[in-house]
């Protein structure tokens, strides 16, 4: 895997995470792994197939006979909608993955994500309660893991999916260490 910085969508000035050029000593934005793109695509396809099955069975029944009386106008729009949504998701997936990035500053952990609605979450290390590292079978097959930093607030959404396993371990150690240094009681 090459230099992660080339994965990044350049931060546009209107991004919540936009900033002047970073000075030395500050963290760099790191994108999540490019290998996460196929994982996400597979997920989208699986989800799309399920939704298609859930909405498309009347069409099959019409073709086979039992629903032959029903109008196409009632049957077709739903699977068509699912198809369109899935297609849009698939097309946007690479950009979404590239927009998802994180950064370790001396005092805070930052995560930004989102294309249409852009979000930035800033977590002071002292607020960290624990760090979660998950990897499902699909993620493992691609050598990836998902890391989440939990505070006492459920609104703190710092899920970073699709970092490499080594990076996840490094992050976990690093975050835990910094969190313990600065732990603030509730």
């Amino acid at each position: 895997m090459s230099d992660p910085s080339d994965l990044l969508t350049p931060l546009r000035p209107d991004d919540p995470a936009a900033r002047p050029d970073s000075s030395p000593g500050q963290g760099q934005w790191k994108g999540i792994s490019r290998r996460y793109i196929p994982v996400r695509l597979i997920n989208e396809v699986i989800g799309g197939v399920f939704m298609l099955a859930a909405t498309g069975w009347p069409v099959v029944l019409k073709l086979l006979g039992p629903f032959s009386g029903a109008s196409w106008w009632w049957l077709l729009p739903w699977p068509a909608l699912v198809l369109v949504i899935t297609l849009v998701n698939i097309i946007l997936t690479p950009r979404r993955v590239r927009a998802h990035c994180y950064r370790e500053d001396p005092d805070e952990f930052l995560v930004r994500k989102g294309l249409l609605v852009r979000r930035l979450v800033v977590v002071p290390y002292g607020r960290m309660q624990y760090v979660d590292v998950n990897s499902g079978p699909l993620l493992r097959a691609f050598g990836l893991a998902e890391i989440t930093l939990h505070t006492a607030s459920p609104q703190t959404d710092t899920k970073v999916p699709g970092v490499t396993a080594e990076e996840a371990n490094r992050l976990r150690e690093h975050l835990t260490e910094r969190g313990e240094d600065r732990l603030i009681e509730l």
Partner: peptide, 8 residues
């Protein structure tokens, strides 16, 4: 605990 900034 933390701060979120979001922009639609």
């Amino acid at each position: 605990q933390s701060i979120g900034v979001s922009r639609g």
